[in-house]
Nucleic acid binder design. Sequence first.
DNA 1: TCCATATTTCAATTACTCATGAAGTCTTGA
DNA 2: TCAAGACTTCATGAGTAATTGAAATATGGA
Lengths: 127, 127
Amino acid sequence: MERQQALIALQALANAARLDLLRLLMAKGKAGLAAGEIGQCLGHSPSRLSFHLNQLEQAGLIQSRRDSRNVFYSADPAGLGGVLSYLLNDCCMDHPEVIACCAGAARRAVQVSLDPVPDESGGMAAP
Amino acid sequence: MERQQALIALQALANAARLDLLRLLMAKGKAGLAAGEIGQCLGHSPSRLSFHLNQLEQAGLIQSRRDSRNVFYSADPAGLGGVLSYLLNDCCMDHPEVIACCAGAARRAVQVSLDPVPDESGGMAAP
DNA sequence: TCCATATTTCAATTACTCATGAAGTCTTGA
DNA sequence: TCAAGACTTCATGAGTAATTGAAATATGGA
């Protein structure tokens, strides 16, 4: 991820309404949630909600798909992953202490995403 | 790290000048850099620089100490670590796919900071 | 076709962030 | 104690972001 893209994503994250939104969508997984349901969950007006959803989508942090009358929004894990990766690798140059501070998460990360790999015969991580 | 604190840190990060600042200070390590030198490196006016340094300090991302006439600023690795940890753990609930996206960093993280992770199947896909 | 539901867009307003330059504080050395 | 250096703070103005409510755009069903 490039600096400019990371900056856009950080700006998207730097807002309470949007952070709540992302958190909710992360919890809901791939299926996501219809805009109306999100609005009910968080108590936002339709236009306010639409505004923030749009910001998050522009930033590559969420995705949308239309299903009949509803528009379903879901978190894009790669988007947030990219931001984290940018901060960790590029901005901090993998500074050991930064890493140590989120090592709990990082460790689970490795165990979750890397451990179950049986061999490397062309097999990639299965996300 | 709590949501409110994470939000403040994200707001601090969501600015090009401050991201550059943090990156520079990360590179300079514990010793840090005097405000004047930073200003020369990045070409900011004193008041502009002071404004952004203050934002970063309020957010817990950098620290300052006075040494004679100079004020030295240095990155606080725990601060950024906290934000990353918040995003990874609390916001994403350790979502495997998010984690996979920064697994390269995470993996180095674990290797650098923690006892060895039991994974010798070697060639993981580096994202 | 007409209506109801779901969501987005628009315009206006308010609130906030950032840059600038002048003035102020702190510290050191003459 | 005075002057200079190194920063910070303050006041102002420009630009940007966020909220609101009304109007517009889809979509599906009677």
